[in-house]
Lab assay of single mutants.
Amino acid sequence: KLLSSIEQACDICRLKKLKCSKEKPKCAKCLKNNWECRYSPKTKRSPLTRAHLTEVESRLERLE
């Protein structure tokens, strides 16, 4: 599967780190437990900047 097509777990399953069936409108866990089942939009991760990478590398060197 391509990364862009990976389905996201519902908010509660993601928060509780449960295996989500990803069914809509309610996944199996939410249906069974009568929880409100919501699927928040995916958040875009910002790409690493060179400055951040350099900072992490220098912190790693100090720890070694």
Results as ranks from 00 to 15, higher is better:
K1R: 13
L2N: 13
L2V: 07
L2R: 13
L2D: 10
L2G: 13
L2I: 14
L2C: 14
L2F: 15
L3T: 15
L3G: 14
L3H: 14
S4A: 08
S4Q: 15
S4W: 12
S5C: 14
S5F: 12
S5A: 15
I6T: 14
I6K: 14
E7Q: 14
E7C: 13
Q8V: 15
Q8S: 12
A9Y: 10
A9M: 12
C10K: 00
D11Q: 11
D11W: 01
I12T: 15
C13N: 00
C13M: 03
C13E: 01
C13F: 04
R14W: 07
R14L: 08
R14P: 04
L15E: 13
L15Q: 15
L15F: 12
K16I: 08
K16G: 06
K16L: 13
K16Y: 04
K17F: 05
K19C: 03
K19E: 06
C20G: 04
S21H: 09
K22E: 06
K24M: 13
P25R: 10
P25D: 12
C27D: 09
C27T: 01
A28T: 13
A28L: 14
A28R: 09
A28C: 12
A28N: 03
A28E: 14
K29G: 03
C30W: 05
C30K: 04
L31Y: 11
N33E: 04
N33A: 12
N33M: 14
N33L: 04
N34K: 12
N34P: 02
N34S: 13
E36G: 10
E36L: 09
E36I: 12
C37T: 02
C37G: 11
R38W: 15
Y39N: 00
Y39L: 05
Y39T: 04
S40D: 02
S40C: 09
S40T: 12
P41I: 08
P41S: 07
P41Q: 06
K42R: 13
K42E: 03
K44N: 01
K44H: 06
K44A: 01
K44V: 08
R45C: 11
S46N: 10
L48N: 07
T49R: 07
T49A: 03
R50E: 08
R50K: 07
R50P: 03
A51R: 13
A51L: 06
A51T: 14
A51D: 07
A51S: 15
H52N: 07
H52W: 08
H52T: 08
T54C: 11
T54R: 09
T54W: 07
E55L: 12
E57C: 00
E57V: 04
S58G: 12
S58C: 10
R59D: 01
L60Y: 01
L60R: 04
L60S: 10
E61N: 13
E61K: 14
E61A: 14
R62W: 00
R62V: 06
R62E: 00
R62C: 10
L63C: 01
E64Y: 00
E64C: 07
E64P: 04
E64Q: 09
